[in-house]
Write a protein that binds this DNA or RNA. Sequence first.
DNA 1: TTGAGTTTTCAGAAATTTCTGAAAATATAG
DNA 2: CTATATTTTCAGAAATTTCTGAAAACTCAA
Lengths: 180, 180
Amino acid sequence: MNLDDDLQSCVVHFGEMSGHWGFNRTVGQMLALLIFNEAPLNADQISDMLNISRGNVSMGLKELQSWQLIRTQPVKDDRKTYFTAMGDIWELSMQIAIQRRKREIEPTLTMLRKQMMSPNTQENSYINNKMKESLELLEMVDQSLQQIQHLEPEQIKTLLKLGGQVTKVLELKDKFFKKG
Amino acid sequence: MNLDDDLQSCVVHFGEMSGHWGFNRTVGQMLALLIFNEAPLNADQISDMLNISRGNVSMGLKELQSWQLIRTQPVKDDRKTYFTAMGDIWELSMQIAIQRRKREIEPTLTMLRKQMMSPNTQENSYINNKMKESLELLEMVDQSLQQIQHLEPEQIKTLLKLGGQVTKVLELKDKFFKKG
DNA sequence: TTGAGTTTTCAGAAATTTCTGAAAATATAG
DNA sequence: CTATATTTTCAGAAATTTCTGAAAACTCAA
């Protein structure tokens, strides 16, 4: 079983990058396959195409479903379960962003808040101030992300395009909020 | 050697989270220690405080320096090298963001561009369109990040505060760009 | 029911990452 | 220089993560 060149590149690259995106090599490859292959695929096909054991494919599919990145797609006259990526690249990226916010930001936020509450924490110690500083930053980032995640893809696109001219946005904000 | 409660929490938590931030557990703990401990520390102290071998500390410090997250701090009448975090939480976070953009976005961007160039890639195939879509998204994100990274911390703070009211920004943008 | 087709599970194997500690290298005071 | 203090290196140990494959569980048409 040979993947054609483009697909091969994507699969291999996604595999290498997958650590960064939050899952392991084979899971990354499976995701790439389901994104870049037009037709839905069943577990045996994936196992063949990627040379991964059937069991591993089963586990990987489960993980990708838990991330809500893939979904099943019935195929007529076939009892096997077929899978395909959930939505387009934008929707998938947003889904990953949502999950990463949960895994990478929320726990630290929780820990910092708990620690700040704790009675044995003394006000105005060096460490306490650092923790406050961290909390402030993290809360801002978190709020921004959460708000963005509730927008329509179209609005996010607009925002990102603006992002390319961040300084303009800042000027704009000055004009609007300082004066008016 | 006992760390006090707050420091202990931060160190342990940073250790657990460190995978997400791009380094391993002990490196994460070392970073936490150098951020939340006011006084600079030498390698032996770190080794003691965290129960990590001297060799591992040496490697960890090297890694944190390569990320530009810590710097040396001479201490009078002591030949040992002391280390401390490089700047405040904001600066450190920005530094991590810069490095992560390089590691997590740039390589994929490069791969997609190369693949689109390649002569055997056929125009308008399903996969080619998907790759275009990915490239477009990634380029937008990348541009935004790069621009933000060139701003002063103060401006970034402003931007993040705006981020909390993303919809306002969008309205603002409409008013300003559509009409005027 | 039954039994062939399909999927999941999970114990242990394999691969990878991280860590140790002792030896080598480097730095500096005297 | 020399002796001592300090840091780095890196081979192999330990820990962790990932993967396999065979057995168990599940599904469904007949």
